[in-house]
Design a protein around this nucleic acid. Structure first.
Lengths: 144, 144
DNA sequence: GTTATATATTTCGTATGCGAAATATCAAGA
DNA sequence: TCTTGATATTTCGCATACGAAATATATAAC
């Protein structure tokens, strides 16, 4: 199999394994990994513009709409139109969203630690740099 | 943002960037990255059982069905029932699938090389080991 | 002030992927 | 043979994600 696209394959499988693990963890608490990401970001940036959330999580805007829809329907966040700019929407955490976000953060930390198990700090640093390098190697059209 | 789930975030973003890059490459040739993966695997294992493809690409069987459906509809593969075991289906490449697969492999190789740019062999080895480690850290229920 | 352009978000159609449940077939044992 | 349990695949409902096009509002040019 590998050889010809080893890293592509490895990255793809690694991602799927991670997502499944997170989803199984969070599913027990009525969350998904994507929604957990939004809760986490809003935890430190409550009331952020939808576009900012989209950019921070590297999700295209059109995908962010549905994500926000589902989270709003689940009572985790609320949209509020921006006072300054009538085009913009701000996302605010509800109380339920705040609490769920906190609990999810704890579980997420455990998984993140697990990701470092068996690797030295220097090695994790290499991995981090490599993962980050993909953002420059495959930039969005925008931030090219 | 990071800190609390740095690696999770980095891996997620890296994956999305890679997928977008592959999809943009392959979209011009009427392929998607998932379908390219199947073509590539079948290129070396033509007539493989659907379950084997699913396992090799680390896609759950229920996801494989739809993928095979779309590829069959696109004329890239054909299902054929196995002679031995009436439950099994084998996936065979069509001529179109073979050709498309070959062309896709070339483009994929370029991207794979790009993934190594700027990193030494030793570093890529660390990255590979780390990516692989996720398969043990988050095993499928099956392969425990 | 009106027109042209840029920006933020949404809508639409489609592909991917998951889990749970259904279906079909096989294999083993009573 | 009949039943019982395992296995391969599919079906269903849903969440995620993309790109292209639509919509609404803001901003600049005139």
């Amino acid at each position: 199999m590998r050889a010809e696209h080893r890293l592509i394959f490895l990255l793809t499988v690694a991602y799927r394994r991670l997502q499944r693990a997170i989803d199984q963890e969070t599913a027990a608490h009525d969350l998904t990994s994507a929604q957990a990401g939004v809760l986490f970001f809003l935890g430190r940036n409550d009331g952020a513009l939808i576009g900012d959330v989209s950019q921070a999580l590297d999700i295209v805007p059109s995908a962010m709409t549905g994500l926000a829809d589902r989270m709003e329907r689940a009572g985790l966040v609320k949209r509020r139109r921006d006072g300054e700019d009538g085009r913009s929407q701000r996302l605010h955490l509800t109380v339920a969203g705040q609490e769920l976000g906190k609990r999810a953060a704890t579980r997420t930390r455990v998984i993140n630690n697990r990701l470092m198990d068996g690797f030295s700090e220097a090695e994790i640093d290499v991995v981090s740099r490599w993962l980050s390098s993909l953002q420059e190697k495959f930039p969005k059209d925008k931030d090219g």
